[in-house]
Design a protein around this nucleic acid. Structure first.
Lengths: 200, 200
DNA sequence: GAATATTCGGACCATCGGTCCGCTTGTCAA
DNA sequence: TTGACAAGCGGACCGATGGTCCGAATATTC
């Protein structure tokens, strides 16, 4: 069962149309200002269709975002080093962050829209959990002896920086990858910091 | 001109009533689920009054949050060290973060509501600008030679951790100030990290 | 106590996410 | 080819919500 008797041809066509329409609207207008009515209209389908395919506004944005990050995710799971398994934690982490920053820089508006839509559920999104787990693991590996919970917190802290608006503000015309550079420096600072003094 | 002929007595009374009502509702129900209709009803005033006083949902939440952080702000500007001027940057920063974390831990739900309402304008809020400037200055002072822009980025990164939901998730029953401890460790790690290698 | 500026309050509006259901259309077996 | 049936479509509809407006009410001032 691939997924219950295949998706009908028109359904697949509409799914693509909706994704492309949403993508276009988010790119043109800011992250918000993209109501589902407009997406449906732009895609040339009814609103019901959008919901049938994606369940909710959140689902639509999530689908777009996962489409963008699928390659990175696969490369991490079973691609060649330094992204994939095998490389030292430190190299894997910077390679991963480099990839994620690239996605963020190219999709800042989409990030904003997604954050807005997710709201509270942000920390339970499968994608978020995956990124978080990956970072936390690598951090713990690179800094042996670090408290596990604190490694998790550092992972949250690193991911917290991926805010659409912050990405947009950090980027600059003459240095498009400034966000990436900043995040990388931040991550390295965390890895290279001396062991924290025992607090309590 | 205090502010144009004083505020009328009933107006002041209503302002307080609305603030207290909003506070109560946010505390009881989660950060969202606090519509302005309900706030108005709970306060025993008309909806128009809420808007007249606070301009918008965002304005109301902001007012609540600034009420909570006013003391900290004043202590920083002209209070005694280590919060106020005079102490070494490192001590000032940890003292400040300690204070801000305290506020965050006590008002996680409010934080969530405010983030939701601010959306894109987050980085232009007077409060945010104040915190950001303060942190960036202290970081630059504690790590001389650090690129100014990067100090600013680190400030954003530190503030990005103050996400209502993250605060709630980091706190734990048996260790209420776990969020504070984590943030402090994070900040110290950033201050103590060795100078980053020149990238480009 | 009257004149006046300010404020009140809730009806009203537009928008938006999400639901529903009668109609259309792709699919597949005969 | 055709017919029957499941799957999908689309847009009218709904409830909630942020925000506006203006006649009524009231604090303030002289």
């Amino acid at each position: 069962m691939a997924e219950q008797r295949q998706e009908r041809a028109d359904a697949a066509r509409n799914r693509r149309a909706v994704l492309r329409a949403a993508e276009r609207l988010v790119a043109e207008h800011g992250g918000d200002h993209v109501s589902l009515d407009r997406v449906a209209a732009e895609a040339g389908v009814g609103k019901g269709t959008v919901f049938r395919r994606f369940g909710s506004r959140t689902g639509l944005l999530r689908a777009l975002l996962e489409e963008r990050s699928l390659a990175l995710r696969e490369a991490i799971v079973d691609g060649p080093p330094p992204l994939g398994p095998g490389a030292p934690a430190r190299e894997r982490l910077t390679a991963f962050l480099d990839g994620l920053c690239g996605i963020a820089e190219a999709n800042a508006a989409l990030l904003t829209a997604h954050e807005q839509a997710c709201a509270d559920a942000k920390y339970t999104e499968p994608s978020y959990l995956f990124w978080h787990d990956h970072i936390a693991t690598l951090v713990a590996e690179a800094r042996t002896g670090l408290d596990t919970d604190f490694a998790g917190f550092l992972a949250h802290a690193l991911l917290a920086v991926f805010d659409g608006e912050l990405v947009r503000r950090t980027a600059s015309p003459e240095e498009p990858r400034r966000f990436t550079r900043s995040v990388t420096e931040l991550a390295l600072a965390l890895l290279d910091a001396p062991a924290p003094p025992r607090i309590s």
